[in-house]
């Protein structure tokens, strides 16, 4: 291991001070998480309609304005952020669990397992997912709950990360320190845990974010096509209803602006945090900075 190991809080404080990308990203994410958490205190239920006057522009009383359905855009957005985070989070959990399992078994076991798993993975990489997603959600139109959508998205997004994970494992197996560890008599399990995991975790973190981007993007796409559970507020369904009531033609841009802004901030924040965290945690870059420092 390179560099001293700090607790996660210490690492976060370090990063916050040294990396502007991490600072910006984490502040954005914290604000959005706080907004999502605020939904617990919402004065209205997530599906309540006609509880506030229609079509008010943003004001002191309604900071983000109100919709044509009599919903407060501010509170609606808090629900939307919470729900979209739930869908995307679960999808990432499912897809990355499958990917890690397949990728590492393929990379470490090799041989026939590797050939079988790799060809299955290659098959699913080429499969166009959006038409399949549309076909499936069209068939179960209306009953595609948020949970079902998360599972569906998770099941369609493991192939590419699995292949990349396998490639990572294969390079790590070829590294000199793996051989050193083997000759030093370290067990396979300990090598994987102590020597390889520090390399794989930053990779997984960065990869999880691309999963998040896929899930959020697909949720929005399916919802805007009217193929998801349109009753529950998510970033996608908010855009759908704003379009349905022609928020644009009526110049009610706050209705459309809130979910768009929320989604952009969410993904950009996440991306910034993951990139800076990945750089920080990656033993390779840490090695480089150490070398540069000792050279200076």
């Amino acid at each position: 291991m390179v560099g001293q190991v700090r607790g996660p809080l210490g690492a976060a404080r370090d990063l916050f001070r040294s990396s502007p990308a991490f600072r910006t990203g984490s502040i954005i994410l914290l604000i959005l998480l706080a907004l999502g958490a605020l939904s617990i205190f919402a004065p209205y239920g997530p599906t309540d309609r006609r509880v506030v006057p229609n079509d008010r522009s943003p004001s002191f009383q309604y900071p983000f304005g109100t919709t044509s359905l009599g919903q407060d855009v501010f509170w609606l957005t808090t629900f939307a952020i919470r729900n979209s985070l739930f869908v995307a989070g679960l999808a990432v959990l499912i897809s990355r669990s499958i990917a890690v399992m397949l990728g590492s078994s393929s990379g470490y076991l090799g041989g026939r397992v590797d050939r079988l798993v790799s060809s299955v993975t290659d098959t699913f990489i080429v499969m166009p997912r959006l038409p399949l997603l549309i076909l499936i959600s069209f068939m179960i139109r209306g009953s595609l709950s948020m949970l079902a959508m998360a599972v569906l998205l998770g099941l369609l997004d493991w192939a590419w990360p699995s292949k990349r994970y396998r490639a990572q494992v294969l390079t790590l197996r070829e590294e000199e320190f793996t051989n050193t560890a083997v000759f030093a008599g370290m067990g396979t399990f300990r090598i994987v845990l102590r020597e390889h995991l520090p390399f794989l975790i930053p990779f997984l973190l960065a990869d999880a974010v691309s999963g998040f981007l896929f899930a959020i993007g697909m949720e929005v796409t399916l919802s805007v096509l009217g193929l998801s559970d349109l009753g529950s507020p998510t970033i996608g369904t908010m855009i759908y209803w704003a379009g349905y009531y022609q928020a644009l033609l009526a110049r009610r841009f706050w209705w459309l602006g809130a979910p768009i802004l929320a989604s952009v901030l969410l993904v950009v924040g996440m991306y910034l945090v993951s990139v800076s965290l990945g750089n920080y945690l990656d033993p390779r870059t840490r090695l480089k900075t150490l070398v540069a420092r000792s050279g200076a």
């Binding site: 974010v209 981007l213 959020i216 993007g217 929005v220 796409t221 805007v224 855009i239 644009l248 459309l256 768009i260 989604s263 952009v264 993904v267 950009v268 996440m270 991306y271």
Partner: peptide, 22 residues
């Protein structure tokens, strides 16, 4: 480019329509 990259595709297209066609 790095800021544009993570933005969901649909949102990017929608914003372009809003700004340059609407």
């Amino acid at each position: 480019l790095v800021t544009v990259y993570p933005v969901p595709y649909f949102i990017l297209a929608l914003v372009l329509v809003l700004v340059f066609a609407y």
